[in-house]
Design a protein around this nucleic acid. Structure first.
Lengths: 113, 113
DNA sequence: TCGGTATATCGTTATTTGCCGATATGTAAA
DNA sequence: TTTACATATCGGCAAATAACGATATACCGA
């Protein structure tokens, strides 16, 4: 039989629901969907194979309408839930979507909700 | 162009995420998926065309591990979010899934997350 | 090594949520 | 028309969340 790796359980799903139960955090996830169009050319969108699609905290902060500290905290909630992944490069911390987790969550909804 | 009726917006989605960001409420929604198997024969599952799949509050309460008042409150949060619908028949209030809303939410996730 | 910039963390306050017991309300049955 | 049952609502308290400014930490460039 085909083995489904990393199938999501209810507990993990609840953690993701919590992460998304805030308008600003939902917006962040959505804005990162098309980082190149949502963030200006000057913005630090990573184009290298290094960490493609990653955007640094200050650029995200400029779009959220919340303080730097709140933005940082929201990013870490999204990171903890698994919806985002991160990489520090020099003095910047880049965040991008974890498409694999998002796909699993979407599948979970379709199957288990 | 094809008109998408009742397309969900972000605000509604956040309300649904909030409703599901609690393990007990998620369980309730899932238990109601197969009301006939999850609730005993003696339980007041409505089989008539009247309100098919509906289960009364006390039967749901027995399964949740929370108090009667908490169960009632959780049901009304799920109702308010649109994930459930309700009908009072005699002294019982029946709740069942609103499959249309659940489908729209699932589609929203697939398209907008 | 010293600013300067980027980010994370801390401490705080206001609001919301989780959850309960007690009580009120609504309905049926005796 | 009492009584019993089903459900909703109220009042409360502890915990979690929202959000901020201030501060600490990390890294870089001069």
């Amino acid at each position: 039989m085909k083995q489904e790796l990393h199938a999501m359980n209810d507990e993990k799903a609840v953690e993701i629901f919590k992460a998304l139960s805030n308008q600003t955090r939902l917006n962040i996830l959505q804005m990162l969907k098309n980082a190149e169009t949502n963030f200006s050319a000057q913005a630090h969108v990573i184009k290298e194979a290094d960490f493609e699609g990653g955007v640094c905290v200050s650029d995200i902060h400029k779009k959220t309408g919340t303080s730097q500290s709140t933005t940082s905290q929201y990013l870490s909630i999204l990171l903890q839930s698994g919806l985002l992944e991160t990489k520090r490069i020099g003095q910047w911390t880049y965040y991008r979507r974890n498409e694999e987790m998002i796909k699993q969550f979407s599948q979970y909804i379709g199957l288990n909700l």
